[in-house]
Amino acid sequence: MNGDVAAFPAFFSETVDGWANDRRDLAFAWREGQLLGRDSELCRQACERWGALWSDFWQQVADRFGLGSGKIVAERVFENESFFHLMRWRRLFDRAGLDELGRGLGAWLAGAPMPPSPWRDAARDLALQSMPPIPERDEAMARMTSAAVDLVSEEGVAGLTHRAVAERAGLTLGVVLHKFNTKSELLSAAFEGVYLANIGHLLREQNAPDVSRRQTAIVDELVESISRVKGRRGLEELSLAVARDPSLHQFAAQLRYLRGRTSKSTLEAIVEGRRNVTSLEAALFSSFASSLTRLRESASPDVARAQVRTELESVLTFVRRSSVA
């Protein structure tokens, strides 16, 4: 198996699936530690040890399969996909879609054409069809929901209280308690707001890519975008809640499969029309960028910018090589 890149996709998919299912308790501990690490120095140190363990593991994998500089690409995509794979939707679609993503990652690393992804495409169509309706909210409810979203994004679930929502929304405590009797109802409203805000972003139509832009300008824009992203905590809290609570499984399809529109436009500009960019490749790039955003969120702006640029250049090397192939 040494040096056989063709054998890597099956290994990657099985590693993600095994981690998210067979070692589910550890997988949750890792993710919850990432969230806690933003507020706790002790948890931050634990997260750094987790990061070192995974980095060493993926170096051994890279050596075994001959991935070379593709090590960081595989590591980042695993970091994100192992998070999303915790969210269970339909086992057959989830496993088949994961296999397709693994083959897409293998194609990147081997400089081969992107394979078809019928399972992921079907899951994407079903996710669009099953989008929950946007609820009607009166002005007070809208203010409270917005305040709840901000609190979860900034402080996590622990920071979400009726009093905090009242203060943030500029309303009395009595009004908030009347609208949301329990903490559970308040939490549901917050997650609903986070979900709708992020799904709205995922579904927003993008302008046609300006292929006349210079490659350096595109990379500069990506570096700045990823380096400056903040406030993802709400989405990650929501994702963990969906992964833990079977009653929220209907959200899993949208969170897992409606990704990549922004990435698709970016990649089309990168390859400058030399080939088509598929939804599978866009999802891969979105996965890489999401992981990079999450892992660099606690770094200083200058350090984050340098690290993001280095890793982006690595993945874009494979994107460009695929375009030549």
Rank of each mutant, 00 (worst) to 15 (best):
A208M: 09
L202P: 00
L160T: 07
R91S: 15
F180L: 14
P135W: 08
A140D: 13
S69H: 11
G18I: 10
M87W: 03
R91Y: 11
T182S: 15
D121P: 03
E14N: 12
A147L: 09
S55H: 14
T182E: 06
R137A: 12
V175Q: 13
E297F: 02
L316Q: 04
F65M: 01
V157P: 00
G231I: 00
A166H: 05
A217Y: 01
A217W: 04
R305G: 01
T262D: 10
L171C: 11
V157E: 14
R228Q: 15
F8N: 02
R76F: 06
S279A: 15
Q34R: 12
R88H: 13
A20C: 14
P9W: 05
A197E: 13
S323T: 07
A253F: 03
R76E: 12
M141V: 11
K71L: 12
G33W: 00
I226W: 01
T293R: 06
F83K: 04
L173V: 04
A243K: 04
V277T: 06
F8Q: 03
G18V: 10
A74F: 03
R120D: 03
D302R: 11
L235M: 09
D22G: 10
F28Q: 02
E167H: 12
L171V: 11
P135E: 10
S153H: 04
R23S: 11
P133E: 15
A27E: 06
T172I: 02
A252F: 08
T278R: 06
G97N: 07
A217E: 15
L238A: 04
I134H: 10
L196S: 05
V157Q: 12
A253I: 02
T145S: 12
L26M: 12
K230M: 01
A110H: 04
F180M: 09
F288L: 04
L35P: 01
F191P: 01
N198Y: 10
R163P: 00
A282R: 02
L238R: 03
A325H: 09
S69W: 00
D39G: 09
S69G: 06
E41M: 08
G156F: 10
T182W: 08
M144R: 02
L203I: 07
L235W: 06
M1Q: 07
K230C: 00
V308I: 12
S298K: 02
K179Q: 13
A282H: 04
T161K: 07
E221G: 11
A289L: 03
F285Y: 14
N2C: 02
L92H: 12
F285R: 01
D63F: 00
R294L: 12
A142N: 05
V319P: 03
E281L: 10
D56G: 13
